[in-house]
Amino acid sequence: MREVPFALLDEQSKKEIRRAILKGVAIPGYQVPFASREMPIGRGWGTGGLQVTLALIGKEDTLKVIDQGADDSVNAINIKKLVQKTTGVETTSRTQDASIVQSRHRIPEVPLTKEQILVLQVPEPEPLRAIERSEYKTKRYHAEKEYSGAYLMLFEQIMRYNQTSQGADYPVLVNGRYVMNPSPIPRFDNPKIDSNEALILFGAGREKKIYAVPPYTNVQSLAFEDYPFVVEQFEGKICRETGLSNVFLDELTDEKTGETYYLCNDTSYMKEVLARKVAVK
């Protein structure tokens, strides 16, 4: 039986994915098509992000995988195990220790550095898909910088709900050129992409697209003159465990008391803050 290659993919596949990544870095926000491989996980479970991670990872890397803020969800653990088994690299929960962070639907609370790469899993890369089904037409809209459809979606939300109701997948304009879907991260994370020190890569396995936001790239969320972009508001709410208020919070219900409480969504950050508190005590 043939030995499994380092990082699962054969060298030719990795080379092709790296080329797509390089093209994505050269044209920030542009969706680069690539030949998405069959992976040992189901499409829609992070195959795009996984392929990007496998194409980039080296023996010296340390990997962190997050699934909607949690390091220990089944999906995150499975991806971590797969990469570890095929590469032997170290894995971590601490954002600061990771050289590659693969994430589903969150950007960590700890600011990323220029030594790090953030890989985001993307279910639907096309920001104009909701208004145009044809790939041929959306490609043409991007080429012509015709983004009225993206604004129209937001306008419709304002007409219906008196505010933009897009919780995730909120479109952004990258480097003043391409409108991009930042993956289903909450709006709260959109400003973190702007001028981030780390390289941010987006992989959509099912849709066969890779795109990128290089470090220090200008990324602005779409907005209107009289309706500026706003992130989710957690006014008066704090994390029950850490007391933090300037983080993205999960709303939970205490099963015993029926009381609503809030927890920091980024579990590793929460643990870190708690550990610091214990150490101080």
């Binding site: 304002i158 003159e225 309706y227």
Partner: peptide
């Protein structure tokens, strides 16, 4: 919007 208006 297509003509460039951005005032809701």
């Amino acid at each position: 919007i297509a003509a460039g208006n951005r005032h809701v």
